[in-house]
Simulated scan of single mutants.
Amino acid sequence: MTRRIAYLPLATYPEAIADEAIRAAAAFAGPLGCALSATTFEVDLPRTTSVLGDLLIDIPGLVQANEERSRAECHRLQGLIGGVAASHLDVQCTARKVAWGLELDDAAAEARYFDLALLPWSGETTAAQDMAQVVVFGSGRPAILVPPTARPAPLEHIVIAWDGSRVAARALGDALPFLAEGGLISVLTVRDEKPLSGSDLAGALASSLLKRGFNAKPLETTLGKRTIAEALQDTAQSNGAQLLAMGGFGHSRVRDFVLGGATKGILTQLRLPILLSH
């Protein structure tokens, strides 16, 4: 018997993501039919010495204090996740000590061993954006960004942002296994954002899904004065969707990310759970 396992990576240095977002991400695994594997990353800071600096500031003491704070946060977060999962979720928590600056790359590499990553989101820290970018573009696995306002429930309505591209097709394939039996897929195109390869892309995909036994309908909107990220999220929310699935446009080279407009907007202004595939 097979089972799906979601991966939840949590950095602790220099700042941790808000507890509300972590609780929401952990709880999201249950309705997806996933067990949860959470990793907390304890920082290993470099030891640097300077005769003049050591006279003015106790650098070794500061390093040790920050490492101890990171270690304590790992233990606290494991207890937090355990509390969320206590009654309804199969969860495993581990802690890893990694050199400062390598925790995001380690998270992306570890995510490859799971079905998807669940990434807690908070607009109050850049840590969420950093983790999302590295995992989405470096893991090769789908990732769901989960805001603190998300409420765990079976996914009965998914919106797929559809432009006929390879990454959009991958996002659709990654999202379908998590749709509840008999659930609705709304195929969303934005007519005036960029040239599209056909006049009725949403209708064509909805028809294909219907032939395959899914409940699907086309959905169109216009950009107007909104950004593409606002248009996608506005339309998904106004139609009662619980998840927006979309391709992640961009590439990375030595961690300098060049992001597509929709991806960049989503990563900075997240309003509902969003599945990103690259």
Rank of each mutant, 00 (worst) to 15 (best):
D192M: 11
I185S: 02
L188S: 07
L176E: 02
R170V: 00
P152M: 01
R191V: 12
G164T: 10
K225W: 12
P195K: 11
A132P: 06
S208M: 05
A171S: 10
L209D: 06
S208G: 14
L188C: 05
R170I: 00
T222L: 13
V135A: 03
G183I: 13
L223E: 03
L179D: 10
P120T: 06
A161Q: 04
E124M: 04
D174H: 08
L155K: 03
R141V: 00
T221E: 12
D192W: 13
A128K: 01
F137Y: 11
T149K: 06
A175Y: 02
L172C: 09
W162G: 08
L118A: 02
T126V: 09
A171C: 05
A202C: 09
F178Q: 04
L176I: 07
S208F: 00
V135C: 01
L201M: 14
I158H: 01
M131A: 11
W121N: 06
A216K: 11
G164K: 10
S186D: 14
L118P: 10
A169T: 14
T222P: 00
T149G: 00
L155T: 08
E181W: 00
A202R: 09
L188G: 07
L119K: 00
R166Q: 14
A204R: 13
G123F: 10
D200A: 12
S208V: 00
V136G: 02
A216P: 08
L145K: 01
P120C: 05
G164M: 09
S165K: 06
P120W: 07
S122P: 09
F214M: 09
L223S: 05
S199N: 14
P152T: 01
G138T: 09
S208P: 01
G203V: 11
F178E: 04
S207F: 04
L205V: 08
A204K: 12
L205M: 14
G213R: 10
G224N: 08
A206I: 07
E181Q: 15
L118T: 05
I158A: 03
K211W: 00
P195G: 04
D174F: 01
D200F: 03
K217N: 12
P148E: 15
A204D: 15
R166T: 14
V135R: 02
P218D: 13
L119T: 02
H157Q: 15
P154S: 06
A202M: 08
L188Q: 07
A117D: 03
S199G: 09
P195C: 05
G123M: 08
G140S: 09
N215T: 15
V167W: 01
E181N: 11
V146S: 04
G140W: 03
V134C: 07
K211R: 15
D174K: 00
L179H: 06
V190C: 10
A153S: 13
H157M: 05
T222K: 14
T149R: 10
F214K: 14
I185Y: 01
G198I: 12
D130M: 08
E220V: 11
A128Y: 04
A168C: 10
A202Y: 09
P120L: 05
A150E: 13
A204Q: 15
V190H: 05
K225T: 14
H157R: 15
A150C: 10
I144Y: 00
V136R: 07
A150Q: 12
P154D: 03
Q129A: 11
R212D: 13
L184N: 06
F178A: 03
Q129S: 10
D130C: 03
T222W: 05
A117Q: 04
V146D: 07
P152S: 02
A202I: 06
Q129F: 00
